[in-house]
Design a protein around this nucleic acid. Structure first.
Lengths: 351, 351
DNA sequence: GTTTAGCACTCCCTGTGATGGAGTGCTAAT
DNA sequence: ATTAGCACTCCATCACAGGGAGTGCTAAAC
């Protein structure tokens, strides 16, 4: 059962590689010819029969070649994966696209998704880095018209949150400025907990503002459907297995739907920064992803905010290349984010 | 040629209605049976032959029923469309979804797209209302770390624009507050042109800020790919004509791609607020939309900001119902936006 | 003169074998 | 343990026939 001769492994690897490349079930002759092996097809057939019995390969029908099962892919990813480091040329191309990177964090994330989707030719997704708990930096209150106020909340790290407030009674800008100045003086650099502790019972406008502040600080790391960027979903349509029938529809509702966020966050839960997680065919836990694989990584500043990025494609994908790409982009993004936060903390210490 | 007997019209209408409903080419017998006409199939056949010669109907092959051409649809929309006003029940359902509407304009727009997509079961799109030229309301400069400044620009009407600035030399918050206060006192309520006229030659930070301000004010009505909301693209996959082959792929790149914005803005160019424009099969101008129709409307406050919203679906769609829905939602949105701006201007006058 | 019944014709759609090929699984020989 | 040989299985492809839907024409009916 756990018996797995080196040759068996090798053959499993070859079968998967050829299947990933060609997309059709691969037969014994195909393996021998493609790699110029010194054994006969019959030998391969025997080994393949063993692999099938162990559950790593499957048979569409009696006289077809073999196809990897999810278990097969998983074994491949865990034990047979060679060097997943991207060749320097690829690295350069990716780095180059990050070179004229914009200054806002969200822009970086969008860029990362686009780069991932483009270089892997698959669907890509990412979430912006979020700290576990945000710290208050700056509050601004701007009156738009008598009872309507725009509240702009800036957190440390540069995240900005806008909120509209309607009031019961009109206020003027001077009053609002007075309030926001007080907040800025009193609460700068504090966490939600600290703010809650300081402030006694509140009422009216102050109460609403405080509520939103605390809520925003606490909800920093909650990823919702809106905050996940996606790109390149079209690429998945290029794969022959998604070419026809209602699969296309199902695929797209999966990718576009809101459940994807849950899957991603659940799958990424055990991930350290820089770590890569490979989810093959939903792993039995998510039916939506039955034909899909997800290569996910967490990026961010060590001990600080972190986000997720990854690639989503058919189970039949070139895992080595894609894992390499995801890991590399994750590394780049971590560097960017770390730089950002270092700069930030330096400033604070130096101030 | 321009000859079009009433009965011809009626038959064209019936053919289109049945085709839209069934999705298969419709034959003479089908028409007679479906509507209990008092004429024989042969009569219908003759008329249909005439309609075909005039270019309103087409023949997939010799012994198939008739299918409407783009020209046929256009004639239908222009002359044969009955009452496109939505039944009260539908109106109520839509209105109800707008009832607990959020306070931000963009949220309204998103809601409108969702409602359109949902009720028509087609793809929907919308752009946020933009004024021809914005007016400055409020500027806020917040230092994030030594040389990095967050600039928040609020325009009249509540549009908010964020921008990051990197400086050559560090500044402190006090200095920034001084600058922003000066701007707020001096330029409140002014247009880009007025601001440009007042200010003499500038340098350094002031020059950058002024540049962004003017640019933002001028670019208010420019719709880019990012600013167009889309929803319900999946619905189009339900239509049988998009079920198979590379059409799906092409469709999706069309709908997701950036060229759609150009098409929409070009098509909407002649539209008055409240007007509805129907684009059938790309009208020969846009090859991407060959199988698609676009029902578009402009909404907004009269003389003020306006945006676009519409529905995109296969040429084979129920034009009356969809035009009705688009017009109704457009009306609702116009009311919302007008309210918004009225409130705004009231405040300004009363201030 | 318009309408209609009748009919031949055209073309698609579907199901049915028939054929070939790719690949397996088994057995016996190496 | 490996391999050659071979029967077998099942899929894919093609051709072909029959049924069906619908047309276009013609001639008769109103």
């Amino acid at each position: 059962m756990t018996e797995m001769t080196p040759r068996c492994q090798a053959i499993l690897g070859l079968v998967i590689r050829t299947y990933v490349e060609k997309g059709t079930p691969v037969g014994s002759k195909m393996v021998v010819d493609s790699y110029g092996l010194k054994v006969s097809p019959a030998t391969i057939r025997n080994e393949m029969a063993v692999l099938e019995e162990m559950g790593y390969l499957a048979h569409p029908h009696t006289s077809a070649g073999r196809v990897p099962t999810e278990k097969g892919y998983r074994y491949f990813v865990q034990h047979l994966l060679g060097d997943t480091v991207l060749p320097p040329a690829q690295q350069l191309m990716i780095r180059h696209q990050f070179h004229q990177a914009p200054l806002e964090l969200d822009q970086w994330v969008k860029l990362a998704v686009a780069v991932l989707a483009h270089t892997t030719h698959k669907a890509a997704l990412a979430t912006a880095p979020r700290a576990r708990e945000g710290k208050f930096k700056h509050l601004e209150l701007i009156v738009l018209r008598d009872t309507l106020v725009l509240m702009v909340l800036v957190l440390e790290g540069g995240a900005v949150k806008q909120e509209m407030l309607t009031l019961d009674a009109p206020v003027d800008q001077a009053e609002l400025s007075r309030i926001s100045n007080e907040y800025n003086d009193r609460f700068a650099g504090m966490s939600a907990l600290a703010i809650s502790e300081i402030s006694g019972p509140l009422q009216g406008l102050n109460r609403r503002i405080r509520g939103i502040m605390v809520q925003s600080l606490l909800a920093m790391d909650r990823q919702d459907n809106e905050s996940m960027y996606r790109d390149g979903l079209v690429h998945v349509l290029d794969e022959p297995e998604f070419f026809e029938g209602p699969q296309v529809r199902q695929m797209f509702s999966t990718l576009h739907g809101s459940s994807l966020v849950d899957v991603v966050t659940a799958a990424a839960e055990p991930l350290e920064i820089g770590g890569v997680q490979v989810l093959i065919g939903g792993e039995g836990r998510w039916r939506d992803l039955s034909e899909l694989s997800l290569v996910l990584s967490r990026y961010g500043a060590p001990g600080g905010a972190s986000g997720l990025l990854g690639v989503l494609g058919p189970t039949r994908m070139t895992y080595d290349r894609i894992i390499g790409t995801v890991r590399y982009v994750s590394g780049l993004m971590s560097a960017l984010v770390t730089d950002w936060y270092d700069g930030e903390s330096n400033y604070i210490e130096g101030a």
